[in-house]
């Protein structure tokens, strides 16, 4: 695969990754999608989940994200995440913290739609915790 995709993953605290990758799997709010080189322009919101991407060499990386946006323009993907933590740095403590946050979100939700979303995020987090 000669063609590569320009990929940038930024959170408010730092620039996590900037470089060329083969493919990125993005947890979009309407469902997961894979971005390959020459993808059509898309703007999507993110749900809580894990971004997976393969760098030039084909090594796979996983980054936990919570909320944010993904923008595909001109063979480049920019992800603006609210929170982004590489999976290697994600530990039980951090995850339990996120779960507590989510539980609060579920409790605070004012209508069914936001509650469903928050519940979904919570489920995902709990799955993730079980798999760790």
């Amino acid at each position: 695969m000669a063609q590569l995709l320009k990929f940038e993953l930024v959170s408010p605290e730092r620039l996590l990754r900037s470089g060329e990758v083969q493919e990125v799997i993005v947890p979009g709010s309407e469902g997961e999608f894979t971005v390959l080189p020459m993808h059509a322009p898309v703007l999507s919101t993110l749900k809580t989940g894990v971004i997976r991407f393969k760098d030039e060499g084909g090594a796979e990386f996983r980054v936990f994200v919570r909320g944010g946006f993904a923008e595909v323009v001109d063979n480049g993907l920019i992800i603006l995440a609210e929170t982004a933590i590489p999976m290697e740095e994600l530990d039980q403590d951090r995850l339990s913290q996120e779960i507590r946050n989510s539980q609060e979100d579920v409790a605070d939700a004012e209508d069914d739609e936001t509650r469903a979303k928050a519940q979904q995020a919570l489920d995902h987090l709990q799955q993730l915790q079980a798999s760790l």
Partner: peptide, 17 residues
């Protein structure tokens, strides 16, 4: 040129985003 004319697909709707 590198970003202009980008006609996005929106997911979910543009206004929601």
């Amino acid at each position: 040129p590198n970003t202009s004319g980008a006609c996005y697909e929106y997911e979910p709707e543009e206004n929601e985003i």
